[in-house]
Design a protein around this nucleic acid. Structure first.
Lengths: 341, 341
DNA sequence: AGCGTAGTTGGAAGCGTTCCCAGTCAGTGG
DNA sequence: CCACTGACTGGGAACGCTTCCAACTACGCT
């Protein structure tokens, strides 16, 4: 029914082998023959059959993006879209396609990763999560295809990863607040079972320690990156006496929640309280007041991950040439931590 | 190197055919044999080879999501993520995988759709855009696999689509403003080359006409859904005399731009001017004041598209059973159009 | 003339499945 | 006791491509 390579070969008066060589740009084909084959391809609007190619060549030119988080939390902020966008740019350049594996439903055996089990389907995969998930790690260690993780994984040092420098980004943020004269700086941290949460908190501690200030227990509240958790954390902080003069939320969404809670309590930001976030989601600039935050180069993160993975795949080596990539963050100062006096 | 179905068959003491039958849940297999084969599969941790399966069965269990827009505009709002999420839910349920085709770079021949040309790769595709793009439409009409479009396409009535009722949603919004007592209602429309833009404007006209009010030319400004265009449009509207008492922006981002422009001109929303949007992006609720808007069931839209497509695929018919699905929208009333008197 | 060599080509063996087609065997009704 | 059925099973031909290997050609060198 469909046109096959045999049809092309016949039309061009060559063998299937030669037609295949032309299609794959192999050397050692007579230019005249090459042109004849291309002509036949054009005439017939021939499209190679993908499964047949992958089966024979043991390569699929497809990578997977695996997103293990429960999906409803997935797109609360534009992190994943931007990441995917970065990955897609590199993949498009290099003629790779992308499979999306959103681990929503758990299958009967409890393993949410279905697609990635199929042999020959993927040439490699990017895991977009720093959550240390049992099934995921199990799979990672067992898998035979190249896998790159976005976000540091502390428990498996042999797995290549790309990440942003969460720790130093948080540190710079606190340093900025200290420079502004704030001294009683609270933080609403991310979840401590996520490396990014731990790293950002570590940066907070670094800066305070370097300035000779103590990390005060009551000024540290754990959140989970969500707006609601920011709101709750702020309500807790409001019971401190004296109140903190600045609050560093480890995500912009938590900062938003915190802002609402502070406002509900009659406090003005930044007059009564400085507030800062992390991520620089679009909403951060649109908030009233615009939020000081830390920008992550999410697109570049995706690009780096894709480059690392694709280079690895084409090198056919056991280990990638580069094991880790850590990208810098950028402090974005806006009005939410402007001292008025 | 990898375990094949032959290995399983040998291990279970049956033929490859029988092993295949067990794997695919075919009837007419002795229960004892069936169990022996499953045992072998479990013992060896066997995973079927995807390309071989697709090649032999002429089915890939993969659908494509095609997003033709230039990618930088892609994730400005959470539309696509939510849509993909909806699609993914249905695909996961039915054991389908998703390929993401982000038409970023145009290839040398100008055709940005590369992946979807590969024979045997996809069982079907969802095109997530109402932009009427030359290459896309060309491809749509030539393609042999089932394709569903998200967003109405007016030029090819034979192509199945799912869409939200933009027109009626806009109409209800204007009706609400009329009920509130507003009479001089301006609108910042979407781009008129996009069906959603035209439909929302049509709804605006419907409501005014039904109320016996004229559509005043100077109160209609065309935008392009972006914040900047909303800002510019508002500046134009501010030159009207008398000023409009309400502005309906056809997207929340444009409403945000309009809000900034109004504020810059010293107007308060909603005291001096009512302002409403469309989309109900998360930012809408977080704005000051919270924005009255129209919510689209984007997740359901994705689900409907996926259901339509997968049903079509499994029916193996030329046309899907359902040709079109139109989902209702919901008016979300917040403070931005609350009359204070 | 003989020979190696490099460029070019075709033949054919896979790649790992699915699925059609016979074939076996036990059970059933005449 | 003999077809006849129907559940079950195995053999083998696809599916459409890549790639190894051998062969053929023309060429220039000794």
């Amino acid at each position: 029914m469909n046109i096959t390579l045999d049809d092309i070969a016949r039309r061009a008066g060559v063998s299937r082998s030669t037609a295949s060589r032309v299609l794959n740009n192999h050397p050692h084909v007579n230019p005249a023959v090459r042109e004849r084959v291309w002509q036949a391809i054009r005439d017939t609007n021939y499209q190679p059959n993908h499964p047949a190619r992958s089966l024979a060549s043991r390569r699929s030119q497809v990578i997977g993006i695996v997103i293990p988080q429960p999906i409803n939390a997935l797109f609360a902020d534009p992190y994943f879209p931007l990441l995917i966008e970065g990955i897609a740019q590199i993949c498009n350049e290099r003629q790779f396609s992308i499979m999306l594996e959103l681990a929503t439903t758990t299958t009967t055996d409890g393993n949410p990763y279905r697609l990635i089990g199929q042999r020959g389907f993927l040439d490699g995969a990017i895991v977009a999560s720093a959550v240390e998930d049992e099934f995921l790690l199990q799979w990672l260690t067992r898998e035979t295809i190249p896998v790159v993780v976005v976000g540091r994984i502390t428990s498996h040092t042999s797995i290549p990863y790309v990440d942003v420098d969460n720790r130093y980004g948080a540190q710079k943020m606190i340093e900025h607040l200290l420079e502004q004269g704030y001294r009683r700086i609270a933080t609403i941290t991310g979840p401590m079972n996520i490396v990014a949460g731990r790293d950002r908190f570590a940066g907070y501690c670094d800066a305070l320690t370097a300035a000779g200030l103590p990390v005060v227990h009551e000024l540290v509240i754990e959140g989970n990156f969500s707006e609601q958790s920011g709101y709750n954390a702020m309500r807790t902080l409001l019971q401190c006496d004296p109140l903190p003069d600045a609050v560093f939320a480890a995500s912009d969404m938590m900062a938003l929640g915190a802002l609402k809670a502070a406002r509900a309590a009659g406090l003005d930001v930044p007059t009564d309280l400085a507030l800062t976030g992390f991520d620089d989601i679009p909403l951060a600039a649109a908030m009233t007041p615009p939020l000081t935050t830390v920008r992550q180069p999410i697109g570049e993160l995706g690009q780096s991950a894709a480059r690392l993975l694709l280079d690895w795949i084409s090198s056919a080596a056991t280990q990638p040439a580069v094991q880790q990539v850590v990208l810098p963050t950028e402090l974005i100062v806006r009005d939410s931590c402007t001292r008025s006096w």
